[in-house]
Amino acid sequence: MLKEEILRRTIATNIPNYYVTDEDCENLYYKAAANHVKEVLIGPSSYKTAKKFVKKDIKTGISISYPAGTAYPEIKAEEIRSFERENGGADAYYVTAAVGYFMSGHEDNLKAEMEMCVSAAEKPVYFFIEAAEMEDDHLEKVCRTARNARAAGIVISTAFMPYDIKRGTAEEVKRLKKYAGRDLEVIAFGVFDTVGKAEEALEAGADKLILNGINMLIDSYDEC
């Protein structure tokens, strides 16, 4: 797969990283621009430093309730609303779903958070789950609920490394894609930082790829 094709479908991020300074945040945008990456995903408090890049060619996605996603649906929706009120520059929202609560049998909560967040944003809203920890039955329900709520897509993992959980691979992309249909994007995030793994994810059906550190991908491409 061509490097340009991978980068065209890449979202650059720093959200799983503990150590992020204002300078790191700016550099994320510069690196994205230099590599023709069209979207950047950051935390809401990073927006202070990122707003100078708004209305340039790069879109900005904002993470909500990342990484745990354990807040009530109305708290997540209010997080979106208050961000819109105070900043307004987000192009999309990436909300962490209450995965453990959903797996405890609370589908009503998943439905509520998806509906409330989508209606609060009026912009594309994606939901992080932890697909590798979930049965197929869970994935089917997540996709059905997301479609009904008119969510834009599902991200296969939060890729937050301190969590002691299974990591989603291209296999999870395939499993999700089976239930996502055409209306729901599937986004790979996690262990896809080399050309080989990025290709695997895209070939498995991922519509996009979130990358923490574009440099690693570029370097590994150059080594090929």
Binding site: V20, G43, P44, S45, Y66, A71, Y72, I75, S82
Partner: peptide
């Protein structure tokens, strides 16, 4: 753990 919510979101969560 990273404190990336905006202040108003933190206040809203504390209120809840």
């Amino acid at each position: 753990p990273m404190g990336r919510l905006t202040l108003s979101s933190k206040m809203n969560t504390l209120e809840k």
